[in-house]
Design a protein around this nucleic acid. Structure first.
Lengths: 161, 161
DNA sequence: GGGAGTTTGTTGAACGCTCAACCACATGCT
DNA sequence: AGCATGTGGTTGAGCGTTCAACAAACTCCC
């Protein structure tokens, strides 16, 4: 891959930034997840799915499309949807146009759960992230993260093992 | 926790930023982890531990201190160290001063593994993150993430379930 | 100096994710 | 039409994480 000589190491300040980034994401995701779990028995990945479904026409999205939107593998989405289905939050439905297709549909109960959970989640995002940046800084954050996504999210499809 | 009325929702642009952030961290961590695994049979959490150990006097750190540094639970570190020990990369050692204490020590072989893996990792961080930001933007990123850490990392100790 | 309370580290079960293999359907080529 | 290749979704095993419970050692205070 690389020889032992051609690697440009990070400067000390760059390293500090990188470690802050690593620490911040670890703590942030952990905290948001825990908040959702304790208050609504919902994990972050589950919550993300509910949000996407709720915004979609008919509150339903094809499995592969769902996976692409939240950057998870198809397999992972299958497992998550299975759990959500068991909780009565979501249900599976054969896609009309494509014999293989399966679409996940948000149930009324699922929508109600989401309406509750959204408060917890949004308050968390504000308190832990948004409030820690000025409007300009937050903007910069968005731009950089956007570039990372477009670089790494090759052709809009997540790693599909 | 909250009533149904007092939640300040995110504006549409704020939402876009948050989703970019979520997507970027998912893709980024995934990719760095995969790169390390395929090239050096090492996960990101494992790698983080090796880095901290290598920088420490005697290449050794107490378990709890290690957990605090990388923001993982003590339990998680125990498991990870157990796996690393099995690979001969690290070994456990009774702490002199404290009867309960255990310190993890990086072996020579572990250090050699790290020397290789570091190239892969740093090149990844540069290519996927650093190069996607100007110097100023990267700086802003560091400041914001730093604030998040100091808010969420209450008294320097990670969630200790 | 002898308990009450705290800190350190481990354990095992349950949960969630990854990975490779797989089937079913769709598409394209000739 | 018929076969090759690609896509959509699932499955189950194995791995890594969380969580609650625990034992051992330290601290403090009377």
């Amino acid at each position: 891959m690389e020889t032992t000589t051609d690697t440009q190491w990070l400067t000390e300040p760059q390293q500090r930034v990188w470690r802050s980034f690593l620490g911040a994401t670890t703590l942030l995701m952990d905290r948001l997840d825990r908040d959702l779990r304790t208050a609504h028995d919902l994990s972050m990945p589950e919550y993300e799915i509910l949000v996407r479904l709720s915004e979609s026409p008919d509150r339903s999205i094809r499995m592969a499309e769902l996976a692409a939107q939240i950057m998870h593998s198809r397999s992972r989405v299958t497992h998550t949807i299975t759990r959500l289905e068991r909780k009565g939050i979501v249900l599976r439905q054969q896609a009309a146009s494509d014999g293989r297709g399966v679409t996940a549909v948000l149930t009324d109960h699922g929508f109600a759960v989401l309406e509750q959970a959204a408060h917890t989640h949004v308050n968390g995002v504000r308190a832990y992230l948004v409030e820690n940046a000025s409007a300009e800084e937050f903007d910069v954050l968005g731009q950089v993260m956007g570039r990372v996504v477009s670089q790494l999210d090759v052709n809009g499809t997540c790693a599909t093992p």
